[in-house]
Simulated assay, not measured.
Amino acid sequence: MITLEELPLRADLVGQEPYGAPQLDVPVVLNVNENPYPPSPAVRREMADAVVAAAGTLNRYPDREALALRSDLAAYLGHGLAAEQIWAANGSNEVMAHLLTAFGGPGRKVLAFTPTYSMYPEYARNTCTEYVTAPRRADFTLDAASVQDAVREHEPTVLIIATPNNPTGTVTDPDVIDEICAGTDAIVVVDEAYQEFADTPSALSLLPRHPRLVVSRTMSKAFALAGGRVGYLAAAPAIVDACRIVRLPYHLSAQTQAVARVALAHADELLAQVRSLAAEARAFEQWARGRGFEVIDSQANFTLFGRFPDRHRVWQALLDRGILIRETGPDGFLRVSAGTPQEMAALRAALDDINPLEASSR
């Protein structure tokens, strides 16, 4: 058998590891910001019927433009959007890959603001785009002046603003994004993967004023459709056309399109748990502060908390008790996704049992 070291791998990939959070079979999984509530039996049956109907034409390629799905997504987003302003792909990961393939590449830069989503540098690497960063403020928020300073310094063709930001959960107000867009010719990608959980308005309202603005979303989180792999963006039709140029043919399967359309038809039901999950996250934050943890203000369905001198020890101690959270973000912090009331109770009990702050101070 040949080894990886013997293959003519690209030089920038040598020594790299595949991205991915641990997928472990434990009782309480709170590490990847999933919605813990699956679609109801009635919605599952409708999804199954839609897949069976799609199977009748699986000998043919799917609609490569996914026009019906894009129309449904436009209707869901509102703001007067039409199908030609929407692009859909296999998760927001592929949406970002399309954007950087179209607007990044050799000799170009993408700018992000750290700490932020750990896949951004991999999107850049895979598209041979230089990845550059600027730090967020001490409270992990952004202001227009510091972003514009970073744009002048690095001259990116693409800049990415995650709001709510992952892993901190902090948001960037649309007024700040408006000012940023007005001060740059770069493609400004606002990653709103967790927007349904937030109290801050969406950047979608800014699209008519800023033709180089892109708002990216996903159905993985709020819609409880992580296994469906559907992400999408809203932007000017020209940006959608750029994504159409670089997409692989028939990139979105007929089954995926069918399931996503059923989910959108039942948006009210599937989104019903959004507020309760946000409330679970906020309740955990209040509890954690009461126990002496440092907690970052979040508007997402997750919480970044610490600080732990040895966060891996705490992560492992929780895992030993059947609870999986995420070891990510700034040194000393751990991230936990909002789960069911029973899962969050188990997490609190385990943290009380571990008593990591008291143990760390000895």
Rank of each mutant, 00 (worst) to 15 (best):
D139I: 03
V43F: 08
P341K: 11
R137D: 11
A222D: 07
V262Y: 11
A317I: 05
V151K: 08
D320E: 10
Q257M: 14
Q255L: 12
V95M: 06
L213S: 09
N166Q: 07
R289K: 14
Q85G: 09
R261S: 10
R247K: 15
L111H: 09
S92D: 13
N31C: 09
K221F: 06
V215G: 01
N93R: 12
H79G: 02
P39I: 08
L9D: 05
S360Q: 14
T184W: 09
G78I: 04
I86E: 04
A263W: 06
V314F: 00
R108K: 10
P106D: 10
L252W: 02
L142R: 02
G78S: 10
A281K: 10
H154V: 07
E155M: 06
D185E: 14
R307Q: 15
P38N: 11
L233K: 05
Q299I: 00
P156S: 03
Y76R: 12
S71A: 15
Y37G: 03
P115H: 05
K109G: 05
I2G: 06
E94V: 04
A263M: 12
R244G: 02
H79L: 01
Y123N: 04
L69M: 13
N35Y: 04
R289H: 02
T116C: 01
G104W: 05
P22A: 14
P356S: 04
V336T: 01
G228Q: 13
I2W: 14
L347M: 05
L142Q: 07
A235I: 00
V189Y: 03
L204K: 08
D352L: 03
A186K: 00
H79T: 08
Y19N: 13
A83L: 10
L69Y: 05
G339S: 09
A182M: 07
D63H: 10
S118Y: 11
A162I: 00
R362H: 15
V110I: 13
H210Y: 05
D310Q: 11
A150N: 04
L204S: 10
N90I: 01
M96T: 08
V132I: 10
F284D: 02
F333N: 10
R209N: 15
S205P: 07
D191L: 03
L213H: 05
L347N: 06
E46D: 13
P62W: 11
A21V: 07
G183A: 15
Q299R: 06
H251M: 01
F223R: 02
A66M: 06
A89L: 01
S337M: 03
R362F: 09
G292L: 13
A359D: 12
V336Q: 03
D12Q: 13
A50T: 12
H266F: 05
A54M: 07
